[in-house]
């Protein structure tokens, strides 16, 4: 009995392997022979498996929306996608986290419909778009304030000036101790934590503080995972780090904010709060967050509807995920730009 069962198992599995192999080959040859390439377009509309779908109302959307890019913008796009898919059940939205730069690499190749960006598109990326014949629409969706944080036990560092931050973070900086920043501070080693070089946050911080994107000292602890930075600063009294406001908002008991002064007068320093980030008084570390949309994709009804939803409803979710809603004129500008782009089609 056992022999029989084992034999059948073996033969059946072999047969299965053979059969699948053959059928795929057969269908491939018959497919290329009997069905000429023009049928490719037709096949999408005549779906034999579900005839009722064809009769469905015209407003029923289907298809894919592909978004990729910044991990900072991800929570917003994810929230919009989550709610959007509750309304439009047949639309499949996927949101990737390749980083702003990594996402743009795909965007300029025409692989994605939407890029989540924690900075504006760079000159190099614009050029790549031109080369590939890709036109895009840039929309502001929220505002983020990069937060400089220290350990809660740190009772000396309450404010820093941009000049001090530059002294601390610039390329080749030899600054090692707190008292080198301010003589009144302790003679203890500063340990630095920051995002890795693939991050848009890193690009923005280095440009705002050191004057040029990606210019930064290299002897700090980098991590693409902001929770690692939170843990690092939390576990070390002499540490200092920076990351997006959302990570501060969710870890207020673990790290302490440092006020930042634009210029070199520490008494003018401003703490990042919802209000100061929104009003722009928290300078220079508050930044807009964007989505970039491929105009060709915007012609697809499901993408157009998704972006419309994003701009119309997105602000409600921005607060949910701890970013700061756009000020009214910025939101109006985004709405207007979208309307223009949609009507141009």
């Amino acid at each position: 009995m056992t022999t029989f069962s084992r034999r059948t198992l073996l033969t059946s599995s072999l047969l299965l392997a053979l059969a699948t192999g053959c059928s795929v080959e057969d269908s491939k040859s018959s497919g290329s022979g009997a069905t000429p390439p023009p049928k490719t377009n037709g096949s999408k509309t005549d779906d034999p498996a579900s005839p009722p779908k064809v009769v469905a109302p015209a407003e029923k959307l289907a298809g894919e929306v592909l978004a990729d890019g910044s991990s900072t913008v991800f929570p917003i796009t994810q929230a919009v996608a989550e709610e959007f898919m509750k309304v439009h059940k047949d639309v499949k939205v996927s949101v990737g986290i390749a980083g702003t730069g990594g996402g743009f690499k795909r965007f300029v190749a025409g692989e994605t419909d939407i890029n989540d960006s924690s900075r504006a598109i760079s000159a190099k990326e614009i050029e790549a778009c031109k080369k590939n014949g890709i036109e895009y629409l840039e929309l502001k969706v929220a505002i983020d304030g990069l937060s400089v944080v220290v350990n809660p036990k740190n009772d000396w560092c309450k404010a820093l000036t941009v000049a001090q931050l530059k002294k601390l973070w610039n390329t080749g900086s030899k600054l090692k101790k707190w008292n080198e920043l301010d003589p009144a501070w302790p003679d203890a080693e500063i340990r630095l934590y920051g995002p890795g070089s693939d991050s848009g946050t890193f690009d923005y911080f280095t440009e705002a503080i050191n004057g040029k994107a990606k210019e930064c000292r290299s002897d700090y602890t980098p991590s693409e995972d902001d929770n690692v930075l939170v843990q690092g600063v939390n576990g070390d009294k002499n540490s200092l780090g920076y990351f997006g406001y959302a990570y501060y908002a969710d870890n207020q008991d673990k790290v302490k904010l440092v006020a930042i002064a634009d210029g070199d007068d520490a008494s003018q320093a401003v703490l990042p709060t919802d209000e100061t980030i929104l009003s722009g008084t928290y300078k220079p570390l508050s930044r807009p967050l964007f989505i970039h949309i491929n105009l060709k994709s915007l012609a697809k009804p499901q993408v157009a509807e998704f972006v419309k939803y994003y701009i119309a409803q997105g602000q409600d979710y921005v607060k949910d995920v701890h970013y700061i809603q756009l000020p009214e004129n910025d939101l109006k500008e985004s709405q207007q730009r979208l309307t223009e782009a949609l009507s141009a089609k």
């Binding site: 491939k28 497919g31 096949s43 034999p48 025409g110």
Partner: peptide
């Protein structure tokens, strides 16, 4: 190339894109 292609396979009981 850019955008790719879709190969339509006829499996008999259904088609496959």
């Amino acid at each position: 190339g850019k955008g790719g292609k879709t190969l339509v396979l006829n499996l008999g009981f259904t088609t496959l894109d």
